[in-house]
Amino acid sequence: MSGAPRPRRSTGNKIVRFAIVGLANTGIDLASFFVLLELHVPPLPANIGAWFVAVVFSFVANGFWSFEREPTIRLRDAFLRFASLGAAISLGVSSLSIALLAATIGLWPAKIGGVIVAAILNFLAARWSIEGRLLK
């Protein structure tokens, strides 16, 4: 293959790829959460464990398939950005949702609601951490 640069993917293409990874990632998160609950891990620590498994998968899949990684951002730095934002957004939103809503609407609806809200915020966070930009 030639050394010519590959054309950049459109934002629409990135959103579709991000959504596909997000669906797989949600399955991994929910399955990990279920397994940890079955192992009698309390809900909030189970949420943290499931998040950690999911964030590793999400970084690899989004970093190498959904987005074009900015070569000036070291892989370690991109992962730290991604995980830090993921902790603040997805882990924070889903844990807050569980803590505030589980007693009212149930554990699983609270978990799933948090996942949905976090997915929207995570697109911008992933784009910034991997590509080094938010918009355009």
Results as ranks from 00 to 15, higher is better:
Leu36Phe: 15
Ser10Asp: 01
Leu75Met: 09
Gly106Pro: 01
Leu101Arg: 05
Ile89Val: 15
Arg69Ser: 11
Asn25Phe: 02
Pro42Asp: 12
Ser58Asp: 08
Lys111Pro: 00
Ser129Ala: 12
Leu107Met: 10
Leu23Cys: 14
Thr11Cys: 08
Gly106Glu: 02
Leu91Ala: 05
Ala125Asn: 02
Phe123Tyr: 12
Gly86His: 03
Thr11Tyr: 10
Phe59Ala: 06
Val115Lys: 01
Ile20Val: 13
Ala19Ser: 14
Asp77Cys: 08
Gly113Tyr: 00
Pro45Asn: 03
Ser90Glu: 07
Phe67Glu: 00
Ile98Trp: 09
Lys111Ser: 01
Ile48Tyr: 01
Ala31Gln: 07
Leu36Glu: 05
Val35Phe: 14
Ser84His: 06
Arg127Leu: 02
Ala50Cys: 04
Ile98Met: 13
Ala50Met: 04
Pro5Gln: 12
Ile48His: 03
Asn62Met: 05
Ser10Lys: 00
Ile98Phe: 11
Asp77Asn: 10
Thr104Tyr: 10
Pro71Val: 04
His40Met: 11
Ile98Glu: 05
Thr26Gly: 10
Ser32Ala: 15
Ala61Glu: 10
Leu30Asn: 11
Pro71Arg: 13
Leu85Ala: 09
His40Leu: 15
Pro7Leu: 10
Gly49Met: 05
Ala61Asn: 07
Lys136Cys: 12
Ser94Glu: 09
Arg76Trp: 12
Leu124Ser: 14
Gly132His: 02
Leu39Glu: 07
Ser66Phe: 03
Ser10Thr: 12
Asp77Arg: 13
Gly86Glu: 03
Thr26Pro: 06
Val16Pro: 02
Arg76Ser: 15
Gly92Phe: 01
Ala99His: 06
Val117Gln: 07
Asn25Tyr: 08
Asp29His: 15
Thr104Val: 15
Ala110Glu: 02
Thr104Met: 08
Ala102His: 08
Leu80Gln: 12
Leu124Pro: 05
Leu85Ser: 09
Ile120Met: 06
Ile28Asn: 00
Ile89Asp: 12
Glu70Leu: 07
Ser2Pro: 10
Leu121Ser: 13
Thr26Trp: 13
Ser10Cys: 06
Ile98Ala: 06
Val60Gly: 05
Asp29Phe: 13
Gly92Cys: 11
Leu101Ile: 08
Val53Thr: 10
Val60Asn: 10
Glu131Asn: 03
Lys14Gly: 15
Gly63Ile: 08
Phe59Asn: 04
Leu36Cys: 07
Ala24Arg: 01
Ala31Arg: 11
Leu134Arg: 10
Ile120Gln: 04
Asn13Ser: 12
Ala46Gln: 01
Leu44Gly: 05
Gly86Cys: 07
Ile73Pro: 03
Leu124Glu: 07
Lys111Cys: 01
Gly92His: 04
Gly132Gln: 00
Val115Arg: 05
Ala61Val: 12
Ser84Asn: 07
Leu91Cys: 02
Ile28Phe: 03
Ile73Tyr: 10
Ala118Pro: 02
Val35Gly: 00
Leu135Thr: 14
Ala110Gln: 03
Pro109Glu: 06
